[in-house]
């Protein structure tokens, strides 16, 4: 399995896309830290990159990679290897390359310029989101038969998690504003990994505002040890569940 992952990794590195992605992240992060007069503003801009760009690139890259290595997967299937193993090593290779791109591109500048709680929360969130969206992309590409559909589905899912979900949440919060919504919002936020990551960083960045009104509840919950475990646990579920589903489908799929 490790051997297979290694082949996948070599393959990815040869295509140079991942190197371009690393460079892009690195240059953007570095220039943000250089341009903004205070580091907290740079972190703020980086937050948008982590919440928007990282999931997007993760999904698109994974889907394209999956379809490009279709022949390779078919070849491997003719060998005495289980399907689970093949897909997991594909996942391992892709996730590892994206993670290292993120850690080199964003991790190094953050560790150099803003090594504090907020910075670390940002790195944790970015890493978790990379894994989550790689996993979701695998599900989308295993499920769709052709490349166009796969990429389309991935894009739509990204669009949903990055934008539409928050719109819906806003709608729900306004529609039911007469009712106590605090607990429900906590539950709803678990339905979107991007939101969960955002709240996790926000607790470090906007703590003063969050202490106002109902905000204190979020702070009490997410800021406590249980909250951190909860965030980590839900993120883990978001990594495991789509991947597990993808494995199930892949096992039964007529290739």
């Amino acid at each position: 399995m490790l051997k297979l992952s290694r082949y996948v990794l070599y393959d990815i590195l040869r295509s140079k896309v991942i190197i371009a992605y690393t460079l892009f992240l690195f240059i953007v992060s570095l220039s943000l830290f250089q341009l903004e007069e205070n580091d907290s503003k740079a972190i703020l801009s980086l937050l948008n990159i982590v919440l928007i760009v990282v999931p997007l690139i993760g999904m698109i890259f994974t889907t394209i990679h999956y379809y490009n290595s279709y022949e390779f997967i078919e070849l491997m299937l003719s060998q005495p290897l289980s399907r689970t193993r093949i897909l997991l090593s594909e996942y391992g290779g892709v996730a590892l390359s994206l993670l290292s791109a993120f850690f080199i591109g964003v991790g190094i500048p953050v560790l150099v310029f803003a090594f504090d709680e907020t910075g670390l929360a940002l790195l944790f969130t970015g890493a978790a989101l990379t894994l989550v969206f790689t996993s979701i992309a695998f599900l989308a590409s295993v499920k769709a038969r052709d490349k166009a559909r796969g990429i389309g589905a991935a894009l739509l899912l990204w669009f949903y998690f990055a934008l539409i979900f928050d719109g819906l949440l806003l709608l729900i919060l306004f529609a039911f504003s007469d009712y106590p919504m605090e607990k429900l919002t906590l539950v709803l936020s678990a339905l979107n990994p991007i939101d969960l990551g955002r709240i996790f960083i926000m607790l470090k960045m906007d703590i003063s505002a969050l202490m106002g009104y109902t905000g204190a509840l979020y702070k009490d919950f997410f800021g406590s040890a249980t909250g951190i475990l909860y965030t980590g646990g839900i993120m883990l579920l978001w990594i495991i569940l789509p991947l597990w589903r993808a494995l199930k489908i892949f096992q039964r799929k007529d290739l």
Binding site: L44, L47, N48, L51, I52, A162, L163, D166, G167, L169, L170, L173, F174, S177, M181, E182, T185, S189, D195, R198, I199, I201, M202, M205, D206, A209, L210, G212, Y213, T214, G215, Y218
Partner: peptide
């Protein structure tokens, strides 16, 4: 108007 929406702070949507 609706303090609960504080949960959406820094969202792309916002």
């Amino acid at each position: 108007q609706n303090p609960n929406t504080l949960i959406l702070m820094r969202s792309f949507m916002v």
